[in-house]
Deep mutational scan, measured.
Amino acid sequence: PDFTLHWNGITIHFKGIDEEQFRHLRELLDRGVSLEELEELAKELIK
Results as ranks from 00 to 15, higher is better:
residue 1 P to Q: 14
residue 1 P to T: 12
residue 1 P to G: 13
residue 1 P to C: 14
residue 2 D to N: 12
residue 2 D to I: 14
residue 2 D to A: 10
residue 2 D to S: 14
residue 2 D to L: 13
residue 2 D to H: 12
residue 2 D to W: 11
residue 2 D to F: 12
residue 3 F to G: 01
residue 3 F to I: 05
residue 3 F to N: 03
residue 4 T to D: 06
residue 4 T to C: 02
residue 4 T to L: 09
residue 4 T to S: 11
residue 5 L to H: 02
residue 5 L to Q: 00
residue 5 L to R: 00
residue 5 L to W: 05
residue 5 L to C: 08
residue 5 L to M: 06
residue 5 L to F: 06
residue 5 L to V: 08
residue 5 L to K: 00
residue 5 L to T: 02
residue 6 H to W: 06
residue 6 H to D: 09
residue 6 H to M: 10
residue 6 H to Q: 11
residue 6 H to T: 15
residue 6 H to L: 10
residue 6 H to I: 11
residue 6 H to G: 05
residue 7 W to I: 11
residue 7 W to H: 14
residue 7 W to D: 03
residue 7 W to Q: 10
residue 7 W to V: 11
residue 7 W to T: 05
residue 7 W to E: 04
residue 7 W to M: 11
residue 8 N to P: 02
residue 8 N to F: 07
residue 8 N to S: 05
residue 8 N to R: 02
residue 9 G to P: 00
residue 9 G to H: 05
residue 9 G to M: 02
residue 9 G to L: 01
residue 9 G to A: 02
residue 10 I to V: 13
residue 10 I to G: 06
residue 10 I to W: 02
residue 10 I to K: 12
residue 10 I to A: 11
residue 10 I to L: 10
residue 10 I to P: 00
residue 11 T to K: 08
residue 11 T to Y: 07
residue 11 T to H: 10
residue 11 T to F: 07
residue 11 T to G: 02
residue 12 I to C: 07
residue 12 I to P: 00
residue 12 I to H: 04
residue 12 I to D: 00
residue 12 I to M: 08
residue 12 I to E: 01
residue 12 I to Q: 01
residue 13 H to V: 13
residue 13 H to K: 09
residue 13 H to R: 06
residue 13 H to S: 12
residue 13 H to Q: 14
residue 13 H to D: 08
residue 13 H to N: 11
residue 14 F to K: 00
residue 14 F to E: 00
residue 14 F to A: 00
residue 14 F to M: 03
residue 14 F to H: 00
residue 14 F to T: 01
residue 14 F to Y: 03
residue 14 F to C: 04
residue 15 K to M: 14
residue 15 K to P: 13
residue 15 K to Y: 14
residue 15 K to N: 13
residue 15 K to E: 14
residue 15 K to A: 13
residue 15 K to G: 13
residue 16 G to K: 03
residue 16 G to T: 03
residue 16 G to V: 05
residue 16 G to L: 05
residue 16 G to Y: 07
residue 17 I to S: 02
residue 17 I to L: 12
residue 17 I to P: 01
residue 18 D to H: 08
residue 18 D to G: 08
residue 18 D to W: 04
residue 18 D to S: 15
residue 18 D to E: 06
residue 19 E to F: 10
residue 19 E to W: 10
residue 19 E to L: 11
residue 19 E to S: 12
residue 19 E to C: 10
residue 20 E to G: 11
residue 20 E to D: 11
residue 20 E to Y: 13
residue 20 E to L: 10
residue 20 E to N: 12
residue 20 E to Q: 14
residue 20 E to R: 10
residue 20 E to V: 12
residue 20 E to F: 12
residue 21 Q to R: 03
residue 21 Q to W: 07
residue 21 Q to V: 14
residue 21 Q to P: 01
residue 21 Q to H: 07
residue 21 Q to M: 13
residue 21 Q to Y: 04
residue 22 F to E: 04
residue 22 F to S: 04
residue 22 F to H: 04
residue 22 F to M: 10
residue 22 F to K: 06
residue 22 F to P: 00
residue 22 F to V: 08
residue 22 F to W: 10
residue 22 F to I: 09
residue 23 R to C: 02
residue 23 R to E: 13
residue 23 R to N: 14
residue 23 R to I: 13
residue 23 R to G: 09
residue 23 R to P: 03
residue 23 R to T: 11
residue 23 R to F: 12
residue 24 H to S: 11
residue 24 H to P: 05
residue 24 H to M: 14
residue 24 H to Q: 15
residue 24 H to D: 06
residue 24 H to Y: 15
residue 25 L to E: 00
residue 25 L to N: 00
residue 25 L to H: 00
residue 25 L to S: 00
residue 25 L to K: 00
residue 25 L to Y: 02
residue 25 L to M: 05
residue 25 L to C: 03
residue 25 L to D: 00
residue 26 R to F: 07
residue 26 R to S: 12
residue 26 R to E: 10
residue 26 R to C: 12
residue 26 R to P: 00
residue 26 R to M: 14
residue 27 E to R: 07
residue 27 E to N: 12
residue 27 E to T: 10
residue 27 E to M: 09
residue 27 E to H: 10
residue 27 E to G: 08
residue 27 E to Y: 08
residue 28 L to A: 15
residue 28 L to H: 07
residue 28 L to D: 01
residue 28 L to R: 03
residue 28 L to W: 12
residue 28 L to G: 03
residue 28 L to E: 07
residue 28 L to F: 08
residue 28 L to M: 13
residue 28 L to P: 00
residue 29 L to Q: 05
residue 29 L to S: 03
residue 29 L to V: 09
residue 29 L to H: 07
residue 29 L to W: 09
residue 29 L to G: 01
residue 30 D to Y: 13
residue 30 D to V: 09
residue 30 D to L: 12
residue 30 D to S: 09
residue 30 D to F: 12
residue 30 D to R: 08
residue 31 R to G: 10
residue 31 R to M: 12
residue 31 R to V: 07
residue 31 R to D: 09
residue 31 R to A: 13
residue 31 R to K: 13
residue 32 G to L: 07
residue 32 G to C: 04
residue 32 G to P: 02
residue 32 G to K: 02
residue 32 G to H: 05
residue 33 V to F: 10
residue 33 V to E: 03
residue 33 V to G: 15
residue 33 V to L: 10
residue 33 V to M: 14
residue 33 V to D: 02
residue 33 V to A: 14
residue 33 V to H: 08
residue 33 V to K: 05
residue 33 V to R: 02
residue 34 S to W: 04
residue 34 S to M: 04
residue 34 S to E: 04
residue 34 S to N: 07
residue 34 S to T: 14
residue 34 S to P: 08
residue 34 S to V: 03
residue 34 S to Y: 03
residue 35 L to Q: 05
residue 35 L to Y: 08
residue 35 L to A: 08
residue 36 E to L: 09
residue 36 E to Y: 09
residue 36 E to P: 06
residue 36 E to S: 11
residue 36 E to M: 08
residue 36 E to V: 09
residue 36 E to A: 11
residue 36 E to N: 08
residue 36 E to I: 09
residue 37 E to N: 04
residue 37 E to D: 08
residue 37 E to C: 01
residue 37 E to M: 08
residue 37 E to Y: 07
residue 37 E to H: 05
residue 38 L to S: 00
residue 38 L to T: 01
residue 38 L to C: 01
residue 38 L to V: 15
residue 38 L to K: 00
residue 38 L to A: 03
residue 39 E to W: 12
residue 39 E to Q: 12
residue 39 E to G: 03
residue 39 E to V: 13
residue 39 E to F: 11
residue 39 E to D: 06
residue 39 E to C: 01
residue 39 E to M: 15
residue 40 E to N: 06
residue 40 E to F: 05
residue 40 E to I: 06
residue 40 E to V: 05
residue 40 E to H: 05
residue 40 E to R: 08
residue 40 E to A: 10
residue 40 E to W: 04
residue 41 L to R: 02
residue 41 L to P: 00
residue 41 L to S: 02
residue 41 L to M: 06
residue 41 L to N: 01
residue 41 L to V: 13
residue 42 A to Y: 15
residue 42 A to G: 03
residue 42 A to F: 15
residue 43 K to V: 07
residue 43 K to P: 03
residue 43 K to H: 08
residue 43 K to I: 10
residue 43 K to W: 08
residue 44 E to F: 02
residue 44 E to G: 01
residue 44 E to P: 00
residue 44 E to I: 03
residue 44 E to H: 02
residue 44 E to W: 02
residue 45 L to S: 06
residue 45 L to Q: 04
residue 45 L to G: 01
residue 45 L to T: 05
residue 45 L to P: 03
residue 47 K to D: 15
residue 47 K to C: 15
residue 47 K to T: 15
residue 47 K to Q: 15
residue 47 K to F: 15
residue 47 K to G: 15
